[in-house]
Every structure is written in C-alpha cells, then in structure tokens.
C-alpha cells in the first residue's frame, strides 16, 4: 500500500473508525436505558443546524457547522421535553415528532436557500461524504510527520478525535454513577447521585457523538453505529465493562470491513464502480449483529 492509499483511503477509514467508536460509546448506555430512539432523534435533528452553519460560512465542513449542529441537537432535546409536558405524549412519540420535523425543516432549508446546489444535499445528509474526505496534501506515509501536509487534513478528523477523547474520559471518570443510575435510578437517587444530571449527560454525549459523526458519515451510519455495535456486544457478554470494549471492537471492524467492501466489493462481484462507504459500513454492522443474534453466547432465552 503506497501513496495512493494514504491520499485516498487512509483518512476516510480513520474517520469512519472514529465516528463508529464515538457513537458506539454512548450507544451502550442508550441501549441499556432503553433509549435507542434517542439515537434516531439526534442523528436526524442536527440537519437544520448544519445547514445554518454552512450558510454562515459558505463551507461544507468546519467548526461553525459543528456548532450549528450542536445548537440544533440542544433545541431538539428541549422540544422533546416541551412536547412531553405540554402535549402529554410519551417520550418516544415526542422524539418521533421532533426529529422528523427537524429533519424535514432541514430539507426545506436546503431547497429554499439553494444550498443543495453546492455539495450539500439530502443524499449527503443521509449517507455522508466519507469517500470525499481525502488527504490531498499527502505524498505518502512520510506525510504523517510532515506539519504542512498534516495541516491539510480534513477538519472532520480532528473534530472526531477531540469528541472521542472527551467521551472516553467522561465515561471513565463517571463510570460508576452511570452504571448505577442506568441500572436502578431510584436507588441511585436515594444514595444522593444526581440521576437527572446523569440522564442529561447521556443525552449530551449522544448529541456530541451524533453531531461529529453526522458531518462526516451522514445520519444512517450515525444511527447504525449508536445501536448496532453495542447490541452486538451485548449478545457476546454478560458484563458491562467487557461489553463496552467489545462494542468498540465491533465498531472498528464494521468501519474497516464496510469501507473496503464498498470500494472493492462490486468489483469482486464482477460489477463496476463502488458503492456508498457509509451505507456499506452500516450494512456490515447489521450483518455482525445478525451473526451475534444467531450464534452469540448470551442471547436471551425464548
């Protein structure tokens, strides 16, 4: 593997892996807390924020777009609270209403502002633009230590790196309260743990991961990575700590296998061209989940 790999494939694979792992970490707790719908919500609600960020700067990536998505995630979380309290519907229904409204308003915004003409359209919102995140400044492996070439890396890489680091540290520090509040919120509250704050923290972590992943890999892969790797890992172990590490492994495996299959799979089947990497990664994670569901040692009886 030479210079071509470094220019064309290294960064997309790394971004795919970072996005997958960033989503899988909070996904473990969404799954255990039966809040999987929260993943759908965050992965769709960020769209209008991304577009506002794009309209402000005229760039398809960058920290402003990232911040816009964060604001949209926050607004959607508040909207869910408001709908639950005012309309008296259950949180799942409130999320379903909120994320479809947010995503649809994002689509309208795209069409109204003409942003869809420039590299940002509904397709990208759904399955990202992983293949286009190439490293044009790279000459080969030596570029990894060349400051000039490194400065030309797509900003999504740094964003995801920072998000993953923050999420990992938070999860490590707050592991015990997180587990206790997720297992038995009533008992945890009586012990004096701030269970409301912990719930909010899980939502915020999900939002962070979704926002960072969405810009790079789109909503489909974001949702898949929030749920599939943790769900697969759950079927392989009965211990939560092990489950988290296994979910990271499944996320990495899905990203690498999916990316390679998207690029070379059609050729191996005698077809021409390549398919969407984000789509193939999501499908790979689904296949891994199906395998674990059939062969995993800790499937639920019945």
């Amino acid at each position: 593997m030479g210079a071509d790999f470094v220019v064309l494939s290294l960064v997309p694979i790394l971004i795919g892996v970072l996005a997958a792992v960033s989503c899988a970490l909070p996904g473990n707790f969404l799954l255990l807390r039966r809040q999987a719908m929260m993943g759908d919500m965050m992965a769709h609600s960020v769209l209008p924020g991304l577009i506002m960020g794009f309209l402000l700067t005229g760039q398809v990536s960058g920290w402003v777009m990232f911040a816009g998505a964060g604001v949209a995630a926050l607004i959607s979380a508040l909207m869910v609270e408001a709908v639950v309290r005012l309309a008296r519907v259950d949180p799942g229904a409130a999320m379903g209403m909120t994320f479809t409204t947010m995503f649809a308003s994002g689509v309208l915004l795209l069409e109204l502002t003409g942003a869809s003409g420039v590299h940002l359209d509904v397709e990208h919102a759904l399955y990202g633009n992983l293949e286009s995140l190439i490293w044009l400044d790279a000459q080969g492996w030596s570029s990894l230590i060349d400051p000039v070439a490194l400065a030309g890396l797509p900003p999504e890489l740094a964003q995801l790196g920072v998000v993953l680091a923050v999420l990992s540290v938070l999860m490590w520090v707050f592991w015990r309260p997180l587990v206790m509040a997720s297992f038995d919120a009533g008992h945890a509250a009586v012990l004096g743990l701030p269970v409301g704050g912990i719930s909010l923290g899980v939502v915020a972590a999900t939002a962070m991961a979704s926002v960072a992943a969405f810009t790079a890999v789109g909503s489909i892969l974001t949702i898949a990575m929030l749920i599939c790797p943790p769900a697969t890992a759950r079927l392989l172990t009965n211990r939560l700590g092990v489950q988290v590490f296994l979910s990271i492994g499944v996320a990495v495996l899905s990203a690498v296998i999916g990316y390679v299959m998207a690029g070379f799979g059609p050729e191996w089947l005698g077809l021409s061209g390549a398919v969407s990497a984000a789509g193939m990664i999501a499908v790979t994670s689904g296949i891994l989940l199906a395998l674990a569901a059939v062969f995993g040692p800790h499937r639920k009886a019945g």
């Binding site: 255990l32 592991w175 015990r176 587990v179 297992f183 012990l191 004096g192 759950r234 172990t237």
Partner: peptide
C-alpha cells in the same frame, strides 16, 4: 437483563465509600 454480576450490584451499596475512581 442488565449485564452485571451479583457482586457488582452489592458493591453499589458501597458507592459512598468508593466514590468515582
């Protein structure tokens, strides 16, 4: 169905002593 062992649940009762880390 929560993926945790019996001893880990009992240790939760000692959270005030164990703290975060």
């Amino acid at each position: 169905d929560f993926p945790i062992r019996v001893i880990d649940v009992v240790l939760m009762g000692m959270q005030r002593d164990l703290g975060l880390l």
